[in-house]
Write a protein that binds this DNA or RNA. Structure first.
Lengths: 343, 343
DNA sequence: TTGTAAGCGTTATCAG
DNA sequence: CTGATAACGCTTACAA
């Protein structure tokens, strides 16, 4: 291994000068600076990250905590975090909690020790559990897709997304739209519900809370049908895809009989048939922004709300004259609470 | 910050003893071991990763390099890597090369300095570029989804997967099956082609090479139709999904008119309609295995080939009596080489 | 079994 | 502008 000491020797300068030259600090003669650069180059010198971290206290690393890397939502955020970190010369340490909120404290503490800042993507964590976590990180934290007064965050203009979706649906003649909600502890589900209440009041049909997955969607679809809905707005695209699949399976046509709108605009949304109308949120950009927020701590914390945009595709159409009457044999009864406990 | 020195002081022992006790090394009296543990606990001591790395030379970190975190294939591998690393007390540093093979040397060099070992997932890198990269890593490397004599690897029993798919299709009466291939530089495409040649010889219709994406699939679908194929085996699920979508768009029924088989069994495969018949490969397990391979260097390098399994769903059915005759208006001409250059 | 002390590779302080 | 030298927190001979 070639150390800075070697570089200094070859360049004919002291260790200190070599160090200054490498980190292009002031107080180095042009000549020496040149010598050192040359020596470093020829020796193939690469600074030792751990040694640097030990003295400077900064690791050149940002941490990212997500519930599930295989979920396209988080994968997209991860891409953004990764890209921005790389651009700014940092690396990213990822932790996938496998949707297990209980392990987050450990994961965050552990990661927190090894990074300069932490991007935390924990949509399902109850609000009151957030404070201790921020403390456990022991360093700057930026939240993605949720807000709290105690830390900077980047989220999306959900209210506007809901408005756009609702306007679209109403313009198509859907007077009452059903909402297939997400987990109760989800901050962003709360946002959607609040917006829905403010914008649609009693003309929104609450189907309940579902797991934010394809399976949650099939569950919701049956409920929507039973309720005679002509349009269903979904918590996210995964749910919407499930709704689409279930509708198809039960022989109801989309968008002819019922329109479906998703949220997020995950890659699969545009690949499915019919292509999903959905509220596109800038996931990767959120990841990038979160990384930037890590640097600039401010009081009060900076809260960025990224704009969203409805992407109209093929899963929405004018409301049918009369709602479909699904085949009753496949109708599933409405359970008291369709929410499945999130681990 | 609480250091080991603090712990030692509180425990009433020397720094060395505290160190030994913490890393439960031998030569520590039970009493002292206890004292130290107690002190560490009460002080909330956590070892400083950089300091430890500096002295021991090991970082407790494994690196993962993938072309695209948002690609479900790599996301699944990443999950496996992450899970296994965590189980063994290590963290994961990820790098997403954004499908740009040119940046890999830099990324690998940079990451290589910060990790104890590198899991490299670089399916499209030309074989002759691999050697230098392994050197650049400057430490143990495990390859995923490709083999080379110079490094341990974990790949899949592709030949057997092809055999299973072919057997399935033949049993359904498809005598000649079309193959929608992947990038020419892809090791795993080579494997598929070799297996296809050995198993099906001249009864396989080579449609060419396509980008391993949905778009590549729509391209392939047109070619398959023009060739009058009744079954198409695809390089991967993304391509298969594209084929399915394009077939649907052109009004040909799947599986009634043409059967489609994918490869990988990515999550979306089971969610689409019709659900995709595909060769399931244990992606996450591959990631885990790769991490394990990092530890145990052996000469010659260990090459693990994981078993695969055809998952029969709804995109395959008995061959129709006569191949479909697609509407000629939408038929695209066969280009000289449909392969799109991979960046 | 325990403690002292010598590093690990860098950065930073402080005299020259 | 430059060079010794003291940290940074931890591990590990080497002594005791």
């Amino acid at each position: 291994m070639v150390t800075l000491r070697d570089v200094a020797r070859v360049a004919g300068v002291s260790l200190a000068t070599a160090s200054r030259a490498m980190s292009d600090a002031p107080h180095v003669s042009a000549a020496n600076r040149e010598q050192v650069a040359r020596a470093a180059e020829s020796l193939g010198y690469r600074p030792h990250p751990a040694a640097r971290a030990l003295t400077t206290g900064s690791t050149g690393t940002v941490g990212l905590v997500v519930p599930d890397l295989a979920n396209p939502f988080f994968a997209a955020v991860a891409k953004g975090v990764q890209a921005r970190a790389r651009e700014t010369g940092r690396d990213v340490l990822v932790a996938d909690t496998d949707e297990d909120v209980a392990v987050e404290p450990d994961v965050i503490t552990r990661l927190g020790d090894r990074v300069d800042g932490l991007v935390l993507c924990s949509p399902r964590l109850p609000a009151d559990a957030l404070g201790p976590l921020l403390a456990a990180a022991g360093g700057p934290v930026a939240l993605v897709n949720r807000e709290t007064p105690d830390a900077p965050s980047v989220s999306f203009d959900i209210a506007d997304g809901v408005r756009q979706a609702l306007d679209h649906l109403r313009a198509l003649g859907h007077d009452v739209v059903a909402y297939a909600g997400g987990p109760r502890t989800s901050w962003s589900d709360g946002e959607r519900r609040t917006a829905l209440g403010a914008l649609a009041g009693d003309t929104v049909l609450d189907l309940g809370s579902f797991r934010p997955t394809h399976g949650g969607g099939v569950q919701a679809a049956d409920l929507a049908l039973a309720a005679g809905a002509t349009a269903v707005l979904c918590f996210n695209d995964l749910v919407a895809l499930g709704v689409l699949a279930r509708l198809h399976a039960r022989g109801v046509a989309t968008p002819a009989d019922v329109s479906v709108v998703g949220f997020d605009d995950v890659a699969a949304a545009s690949l499915v048939t019919p292509a999903l109308t959905t509220v596109a949120v800038p996931l990767a950009r959120a990841g990038r922004t979160a990384v930037d927020l890590l640097g600039a701590a401010s009081a009060p914390p900076d809260h960025r709300r990224l704009p969203v945009e409805l992407v109209v595709r093929s899963s929405t159409a004018p409301a049918p004259p009369t709602p479909v009457q699904p085949d009753p044999r496949t109708t599933v009864p409405r359970t008291a609470d369709p929410e499945v406990v999130i681990r």
